[in-house]
Simulated assay, not measured.
Amino acid sequence: MGKWQDIDKQTIKETRARIDHMIHWTPLLRSSAINKLAGCQVFFKCENFQKVGAFKARGAANAVLNLSATDRKNGVATHSSGNHAAALARAAAEAGIPAYIVMPSTAPEIKKQAVREYGGQIFECAPSLQAREDRLKALVKSYQAIFIPPYNHCDVIEGQATCAFEIFEEGLSLDVLMAPVGGGGLLSGTALASQFYSPETAVIGAEPEGADDAKRSFKAGKRIPMENPDTIADGLLTSLGEINFEIISQYVADILTANDEEIIAAMKLIYERMKIVIEPSCAVPLAVLLKNKSLFQGKEVGIILSGGNVDLSKLPFG
């Protein structure tokens, strides 16, 4: 893993070629009903159709493929509440190496099930960052596995950057590109790709009000970790990573928030109008857009639909 400053236009392109056999080039969809409601042209990048059902497949694949033969030998380890866990388990399986995954006991069962199906070994812990880190440290020591963080890692960030790269490769010249933000892997990768491939595009982060550490950190100019996050967007509970914050501070135009009621309404709108399955975290950018219509009036806006791993028995609407 190098420095994020080493990531450039060429390395993102090379990363996309490297991971090509392990991921989908996901489609861009539009909805005339949503365009009318939003008062702008919205292009949805459907990472809910990605391998493992989320953009996380990109970063995990790149991180594993970049490991040396020596580092691969003892496998990989991480802590994750869901999508990164499944993505790393799958990438490890493709590489023929073991994956040791620490997951909080409260993680959605659908996400635990996915990790098991990809051959990952799950080690449950209490639902706190400290518990996750302690259990991970013990696993890394025990198995001599390589830790692949969910977001605070240059290879992971560069893998996530390939999502925005695909958007710009299709010839879109967007006024705005929006991505949800939790740990910041997707948003920082999106910001870098936009800077190199479409510098006139403003990148905006979208975050739940109940887990708004990225917005507060962005405004304060320093990282402010989230304590006791509370939001339906379970994929965005994590505090912003250090490397991610550096990139976001430099290349992101703004971070806007929406509350759970607004997130649920946006999620329902996508189900009804676009007929696709998304998870709550995925709906946050659309919720933010609809809440701030005047900012986007008449513009061309890209939204990355980050994932579709939702427990259908627990949908937040009837």
Score class of each variant (00 low, 15 high):
T78L: 01
T78A: 14
N62Y: 04
S80E: 08
V76F: 02
K45R: 15
L65M: 13
H79E: 02
C46M: 15
K51C: 01
V76W: 01
H79M: 05
S68C: 06
K56Q: 14
S68E: 07
K73W: 07
D71N: 12
G75R: 00
A57G: 06
E47A: 10
S68L: 05
K56I: 11
N74Q: 07
V64W: 10
R72T: 11
K73R: 15
S80A: 10
Q50S: 05
K73G: 02
R72M: 15
L67T: 03
D71A: 12
F55W: 13
N62G: 09
H79L: 08
V64D: 06
N66M: 11
G75Q: 01
S68G: 14
R58K: 11
N66H: 09
C46N: 06
K73E: 15
D71G: 05
S68K: 07
K51P: 00
A63P: 08
H79G: 01
A61S: 15
L65T: 12
D71R: 07
A54Q: 10
L65K: 11
K51A: 06
L65W: 02
F44P: 05
A61G: 13
A63M: 07
N74K: 09
Q50D: 03
K51H: 08
R58Y: 05
T70C: 06
G53M: 00
R58S: 04
L67S: 07
N48W: 06
V76N: 03
K45W: 12
D71L: 10
G59Y: 09
Q50C: 03
F44E: 04
R58D: 04
H79V: 03
N48K: 04
A77T: 00
L65G: 02
C46E: 09
A54E: 12
E47K: 13
A69R: 14
F55I: 13
G75T: 01
R72F: 12
G75M: 01
F49A: 04
K73M: 14
L67R: 02
R58A: 05
S80T: 08
A69F: 10
A77M: 00
L67H: 02
A54D: 10
N62P: 08
A63H: 05
G53R: 00
T78E: 02
Q50V: 04
K56Y: 14
H79P: 01
A77C: 00
R72V: 11
S80V: 08
A61Y: 08
R72S: 15
F55G: 12
D71H: 09
C46A: 14
C46K: 04
Q50P: 02
F44M: 08
Q50G: 07
S68Y: 03
T70V: 14
T78M: 02
A57D: 07
N48I: 03
N66R: 14
K73V: 09
A77G: 00
N66T: 12
A54K: 08
F49I: 01
S68N: 06
N62L: 10
S68T: 15
L67E: 03
C46Y: 04
K51R: 13
A77I: 00
T70A: 15
T70F: 11
R58H: 08
E47L: 13
Q50I: 02
L67Y: 02
L67N: 03
F44K: 04
L65C: 06
T70P: 00
N66K: 14
G75S: 03
F49Y: 13
